[in-house]
Simulated scan of single mutants.
Amino acid sequence: MKKELTYFNIEGEYGGNQNWFYDPMMRLGGCAAIATCDLCIYLNLYKGNKHLYPFNIDYLQKRIILSFQKL
Rank of each mutant, 00 (worst) to 15 (best):
M1D: 10
M1E: 12
M1A: 13
K2N: 12
K2P: 10
K3A: 12
K3Q: 10
E4F: 02
E4N: 04
E4I: 12
L5E: 13
T6S: 08
T6D: 12
T6L: 13
Y7A: 07
F8E: 08
N9W: 06
E11I: 01
E11D: 06
E11Y: 04
G12W: 05
Y14A: 14
Y14Q: 13
Y14V: 11
G15N: 06
G15V: 06
G16H: 02
G16T: 02
G16K: 00
N17S: 08
N17H: 04
Q18T: 03
Q18M: 05
N19R: 11
N19E: 14
N19G: 08
W20N: 05
W20L: 02
F21L: 11
F21I: 07
F21P: 04
F21K: 06
Y22I: 09
Y22T: 14
D23S: 12
D23I: 05
D23L: 04
P24T: 02
P24R: 03
P24W: 00
M25L: 15
M25Y: 14
M26F: 11
M26H: 08
M26N: 10
R27A: 06
R27Y: 03
R27N: 12
R27P: 03
G29H: 06
G29M: 06
G29S: 08
G29P: 02
G30R: 02
A33D: 01
A33Y: 05
A33R: 02
I34H: 00
I34A: 01
A35Q: 13
A35V: 03
A35G: 13
A35R: 07
A35D: 12
A35S: 14
A35H: 10
T36E: 08
T36L: 12
C37F: 07
C37K: 00
L39Y: 11
L39D: 11
C40L: 13
C40D: 15
I41T: 10
Y42P: 10
Y42I: 09
Y42C: 13
Y42L: 07
L43A: 10
L43Y: 15
L43P: 05
N44M: 06
L45F: 01
L45W: 02
L45T: 04
Y46Q: 13
Y46D: 11
Y46P: 09
G48V: 05
N49S: 07
N49A: 08
N49G: 00
N49M: 08
K50Q: 14
K50M: 11
K50L: 12
H51W: 04
H51Y: 06
H51I: 05
L52C: 07
L52D: 09
L52Y: 11
Y53I: 04
Y53Q: 11
P54C: 10
P54S: 07
I57G: 02
I57A: 14
I57T: 12
Y59E: 15
L60G: 04
L60C: 09
L60R: 08
L60T: 07
Q61H: 05
Q61V: 11
Q61M: 11
Q61C: 09
K62D: 00
K62F: 00
R63S: 14
I64S: 09
I65S: 03
I65Y: 15
L66E: 10
L66H: 03
S67G: 00
S67N: 03
F68I: 01
Q69E: 03
Q69S: 10
Q69M: 14
Q69L: 07
Q69N: 02
K70L: 09
K70Y: 01
L71E: 06
